[in-house]
Design a protein around this nucleic acid. Sequence first.
DNA 1: CGCGATCCTGCAAAGGTTTGCAATGAAGTA
DNA 2: TACTTCATTGCAAACCTTTGCAGGATCGCG
Lengths: 392, 392
Amino acid sequence: MGHTHVTAATSDEGAAVPVTIRDVARASGVHISTVSRTFSAPHLVNPETRVRVLACAEDLGYRPNRAARALITGRTHNIGLIIADIANPFFPPLIKAAESQARHRDYHVFVADTNEDPTAEEELVHALAKQVDGVLLCSPRMSNSLIEQLSREVPLVVVNRQVTGLPCVLMDVGQGARSAIEHLVGLGHRSIALLGGPRSSWTNREMRRAAGTAARAGGAELTLLGPNAPTEIGGSAVAEQVRRSGVSAVLAYNDLMAIGLIEGLDALGVRVPQEVSVVGVDDITLSRLTRPKLTTVATPTGAAGRTAVDMLLQQDIESPRGARGPGAGTALGVRRTTAQVMLQTDLVIRDSTGPGPHARPARPLAAPRGPDPHCPAGPGIPTAATGDAVAS
Amino acid sequence: MGHTHVTAATSDEGAAVPVTIRDVARASGVHISTVSRTFSAPHLVNPETRVRVLACAEDLGYRPNRAARALITGRTHNIGLIIADIANPFFPPLIKAAESQARHRDYHVFVADTNEDPTAEEELVHALAKQVDGVLLCSPRMSNSLIEQLSREVPLVVVNRQVTGLPCVLMDVGQGARSAIEHLVGLGHRSIALLGGPRSSWTNREMRRAAGTAARAGGAELTLLGPNAPTEIGGSAVAEQVRRSGVSAVLAYNDLMAIGLIEGLDALGVRVPQEVSVVGVDDITLSRLTRPKLTTVATPTGAAGRTAVDMLLQQDIESPRGARGPGAGTALGVRRTTAQVMLQTDLVIRDSTGPGPHARPARPLAAPRGPDPHCPAGPGIPTAATGDAVAS
DNA sequence: CGCGATCCTGCAAAGGTTTGCAATGAAGTA
DNA sequence: TACTTCATTGCAAACCTTTGCAGGATCGCG
């Protein structure tokens, strides 16, 4: 590793003296159990004692050892967050929201990246299992059956995937794809391509299903292209294929692919939206910054992260892990209710979609359009309703 | 919270039977200490016994309880990663690299987001202290003295900040800023603005210092604008100010601001790079995707994450935390060597910079330029050398 | 055959916290 | 006054693992 040590100094440092509950007990003249209760069950200790203990604790800089606490309570107050690819801008807002929500509930979040690799996913669940109270599985690439199996090892909440028997947070990409297709059909497009994402993606299947239905209903022909890598590269790689297919509009699996496709088409001399319209999914920050600005289906990423954490913690509180007390370890089945939450998506119309070859002549050609009925707050600004739910 | 429960089912699930070292011991007919050694000191146990124990462990699905292990060894095998803003695309590659590197060393990573808030930073260090073996502080916003103080509580490695006595990973933004200014001066710009970032940012100070020197050396005038929020919004907000200042080129604190600025200038009818040249810092993915593509100083984010983890673990191995064995708890000072690593940056020339008003007439005006000597692999492709070091 | 060395394994303490139970004392009730 | 109830606190077991120490067996060597 070619670093250069600019400075190499030595410094004196007192060994971090670990101050335990015992020290606090001694300092405040009570038994350690009283100190413990001061923190974990304050109502059980005399207010006067409590303030004294708290003062001593503060004074000594005491912080409860979470490992010891975890050891006896069986609850680590940690949760795991397994992500297909942190570098995909879709995920950071989700991570951020989840971490913040967890922190408010006095939980910490382990983040792990699988590089879209199903095997890594499985290993990570195993590795995390004993160390966390539950795991959030975001856009998993492994099989449903494996997920179910793993859920017997550690409480799981799945995001962007429907697994029966498990709590799931879903984004209504079906509705999103439908809106997108309807938007394109309304613009006069009759030949549309769907740029598929990873084969094992639930989102991918949902989009295909909904887009197919919507296209049929609108009298348009839908061409399936894929599967592809859900990245910019994946998008630009199919540009040539898109051109040859002769479609006048494309719905891409996500924004990254849409942007890559636009790049690729541009390199081939195909103009967007004049010759081909492109719609993405996710509404990542980037999609507002490219030229042309991307028309896309906004997904409520932050809300998904928060909701997933809530569901995990709720489920977790119902059924604490580990046997409590001697003799309570009989493996009696735990009955728990699982819920699936569907979050609404919103079509955000910007500049990457325009009139198709079948547009009625009355429509102005290739002119900037006004706000679309689907997008109450006007183009470019995700609606506040994005995080809200939709009855389905 | 407006979600709709699409499904609410109940499922039977065996209580996750916690299989401990004791179960494995019973199953394989040895004492628990032998099982323990099988995992933590395999060379001390008879090969035959070992395979038998391993088989049983595998069979029962045993995984060592890390909390218990942490309790007695004093090492959690976790590290904390404190980030100013996960949503800033500068950080995900760093997180990803750090997490991956840590995992290879059998460590897990807690990720926490401070929203650029110094107070949150301090609280997070406290909260994490007892739970991790060390903390990576990325682009901290708190004061040096506070950082030093916190480093007495938990081993710290600082990224993007120079703190004497603490191990630091720095990116040579000074060199980067110099290259950028020289590039602009070479293009004929004599009046350049520096768009500052957060006041408490070390990077910010370094850039100001280096850019000032380079501008003086090149006979250019440098205008300081800031501090600003290191975001797209922060950049677009100063567009008007940039126009009024009359400069012909701008070096922005980071890519996000540069892109925001270009957006803002565009809205004011100022063309980039024809009227104003813009240079960013970081080379985030986004900078290759905007129009015009951004000229920027590439920072080795992944290498920084990996290096930081390595430094933390190395320092950590030298001085294990917590008193080992009875009577060893005397607070004798631990002497440890701290190093600072400086990583090289690289100017990547793309399309957001062009000839300035003082360009020699021989130069073609506003025409696409070929590869720049600063960028060996050609524009648009970060050089492989980016992660390597530079002697300084 | 005896002795030490080596290898393997068991024993038990320790690590910091939580928590059921018991003890204490005070206050309230009959 | 005697008895009950309640609030507060102490006691000690338990959580699961690691590790220093010692015991036992086996082997090599003189």
